[in-house]
Design a protein around this nucleic acid. Sequence first.
DNA 1: TACAAAATTAAACAACTGTTTAATTTAAAC
DNA 2: GTTTAAATTAAACAGTTGTTTAATTTTGTA
Lengths: 208, 208
Amino acid sequence: MKTDFNEKQVQILLIAEALFAENGFEGTSIRTIAKKAEINIAMVSYYFGSKDKLLEALILYRTSDLKIQIENLSVENLDPVEKIDKLIELYINRIRCNKGIYRILHFEFSSEDRETKMKVLNEVRTRNLKSLETIIHEGQAKGIFRKEVIIPLIPPTIMGTFFHFYMNKEYFKKLLTLETDEAFENYIQTKLKTHIQQTIKALLLYES
Amino acid sequence: MKTDFNEKQVQILLIAEALFAENGFEGTSIRTIAKKAEINIAMVSYYFGSKDKLLEALILYRTSDLKIQIENLSVENLDPVEKIDKLIELYINRIRCNKGIYRILHFEFSSEDRETKMKVLNEVRTRNLKSLETIIHEGQAKGIFRKEVIIPLIPPTIMGTFFHFYMNKEYFKKLLTLETDEAFENYIQTKLKTHIQQTIKALLLYES
DNA sequence: TACAAAATTAAACAACTGTTTAATTTAAAC
DNA sequence: GTTTAAATTAAACAGTTGTTTAATTTTGTA
């Protein structure tokens, strides 16, 4: 499967990604993409084959972004608590930069099983869960983290909190009096990020 | 606006609700509803006027379920920690029983502003947030809960965790070796519920 | 300049969507 | 039994969807 795209294709991918993030996959028509990209509607099929394959291309295009970063974390010379902080920061930044795909991967086609999608997604999930496990086990071995934690339920808390906040943007903008989209984005990177870090750390450190 | 529905209407509402929970609002066609309910496709328009009004009817039909329950919680003679446990249990049960509407309300039409939907949703949200605030302030006044918590970010963690888990059902069934849907549902009511309760309590009790 | 490949276009396609129509059946009331 | 309203039906409607066609333009190359 090809993973190199020419600039015209990349242009389409980026516009599609933004529209997917805003309106979802099914909520975004090829005609909408074509109009925004100022191309003929046939060009999407011409370049990618179909709308589904456009999505797969987008996933492939972004896969590299999803893969890197996390690996080197468990090697770094930090204590487990700092590693958790850093891991969550990486999580959030990665999701923030790939909202479009993440929304589709995690919240749409929940039942359907697209080959490419599922393969890539499961790889990423498995790797991320392993990184998290390594860090937590290290913290537990050092007697810092408690042991009564179900590790696979931690990513849902991180990602779920983020997406619930993001998907209800207008509500939270009003509630927290964030006037602009920039203020909203800024709130995510400061307050929301800290909230999630606090939450997970508290879960791991708390002694009943 | 009428809130009483005859049994035929209720039958349609319940089937629509289940399909919405599974495939979302836009992912569910009137023809699919009609087929599953074994009625003519025209009957939906006949009884409700339109697909949009069917959704509004469903929201109205379930509103009573959303409203009750929580109110009396802050009055009960429990300590704040127990109240948090109970509140989360109520939260989860209510979402579990209203997956269809919750999915639509919180994850679809994020941009669009349907009058009925927004009105009902905001009422419920405001009330729930107030209940939570009351409990937490009580705990803070008693010196049990820490004060460096952003309360409006707690519901996103509760609901986000739940929904991220629920929306990725197949993945978690495989990961946690839950063979059947019943096992999955059971896991939610035991392990996931406990995880969320632990998480929120840890966040509130943790002393840095 | 001439030729071939790539890119782009408008138009049509079939399948689906929500909704409406007009005819028919069922039910209830008198 | 007749009448009137409610319920149900099949069919058609207009709009949108993703995709394909066949013709045209652009581009690069010899």
